[in-house]
Computed example of a mutant assay.
Amino acid sequence: MKAIVQNRYGGAEALSCADVARPLVGDHEVVVQVVAAGVDRGAVHFMTGEPYLMRLGTGLRTPKVRVPGVSFAGRVEAVGSQVTRFAVGDEVYGAARGTYAEYVAAAERKVASKPADLSFEEAAVLPYAAFAALQAVRDHGRVQPGEQVLVVGASGAVGSIAVQVAKADGAEVTGVCGPRDQQLATAIGADHVIDYSRGDFTDGNQRFDVIIDVFGRTPIRRLRRALAPRGRLVITGGEGDRWIGGTQRQLGAMLLSPFVGQTLRAFVAKENAETLQAVNDLVTAGRLRPVLGRSYPLVEAADAVGALEAGAGSGRIVLTV
């Protein structure tokens, strides 16, 4: 089968197209003929092996998994002997390693039926973002109707889903993003939008019940100024140096939390079908939809990754197979 491969860590420059063996199906797996695959930050972190701390699990000198990609949508080609939820021909989406290929093997517990209301391209960009966003808003932020919620990074893959989920759960949502994405944040449902280049959302003039900070760099002490005295801060990922990324900020928040009135949390998203089913419910109810950007054919994966790294355009980038 055709696949995008990498034999070393790196970004777009490390990718090439090659013929590789089609994956075999495990007892608890499905093999999916990929129709579309999401191009997202999660995939790029695995490609580059940054922060370096993650290489303890992905391979110290070279990637253990040669085919990049973490999100997909497609049709079931084969099912394992212990699989009960899917049959050959079902349209599905989910998470797996090695999705930039014509076929991918995925654990049944990380796959869900594709919503009929979404195209394969729309479904393919959802899993990575949905796991982080839904779990941040519902499991860790515990957002309630009527609460004031601030989403820092509201126009990104995770932030745009978090805005829609918080709105669906009855919150009044303020989004923080750059000047280019103000209209996008409003279009996906944000009640208020703050341009971080023109104002300081941590000046303390407004306090929020919940802050969802998506892949940010803002120090905890500043975020706490914008948080209500009994508010909840949820850190979803983080950016930082090449060695440990934003880990120090996340650990600092959790260590401080027991000593202050506010709840400060960080978490690692769980890849599971239950979260995807919650996404399906929101999509069916008309409360959630991803914002698509440019589509690239599989053989142009390097160009797609390069566009993501350059921050080109709005909307999620997708590969079509």
Rank of each mutant, 00 (worst) to 15 (best):
V125A: 10
N7K: 08
S81N: 06
P290C: 03
A116R: 12
G306M: 06
Y196Q: 09
A285C: 03
Q183W: 08
A187E: 15
E147V: 06
S160A: 04
L276V: 03
I212S: 05
R75E: 15
A105I: 06
A228K: 02
L298R: 05
A307N: 10
A107S: 11
E77P: 00
E50A: 10
P23R: 07
R138T: 13
D169H: 09
A21P: 13
A136G: 04
L298Q: 08
Y9C: 02
Q250I: 13
G42C: 02
A285K: 10
V173D: 09
G74D: 08
R109M: 00
Y52M: 09
A307E: 13
V143P: 13
E309C: 06
A310C: 06
G156M: 01
D213V: 00
V214P: 12
T275A: 08
D195K: 10
T58I: 10
V34S: 03
G231N: 10
P290D: 04
L288C: 08
V291K: 07
S295Y: 10
L288E: 12
W243C: 05
D40G: 09
A43E: 00
A12P: 01
L118F: 14
L298Y: 04
D90I: 09
G156S: 04
D213E: 15
T275D: 14
A21Y: 11
P297T: 05
A285P: 12
R66K: 14
E172L: 11
I211F: 01
I188N: 15
I194T: 14
Q182A: 10
G146I: 02
A266L: 01
A302D: 13
E239R: 01
A112Q: 02
V67N: 07
G313W: 12
V125Q: 11
V299P: 00
M54W: 03
D281L: 08
K2P: 04
G313A: 13
L134G: 03
K64W: 06
G170N: 12
V234Q: 00
T247S: 05
A36E: 07
A226E: 15
L256P: 01
D40I: 00
E108G: 01
L282T: 15
E274M: 05
L319C: 12
A73N: 09
R287I: 02
L15M: 01
E13D: 13
V318Y: 06
A95L: 14
G261V: 03
F201C: 08
G178H: 05
Q144A: 15
L150S: 07
P219Y: 11
P127F: 11
A101H: 07
Y52C: 02
A73L: 06
G49I: 04
V143T: 14
A228T: 12
L319N: 13
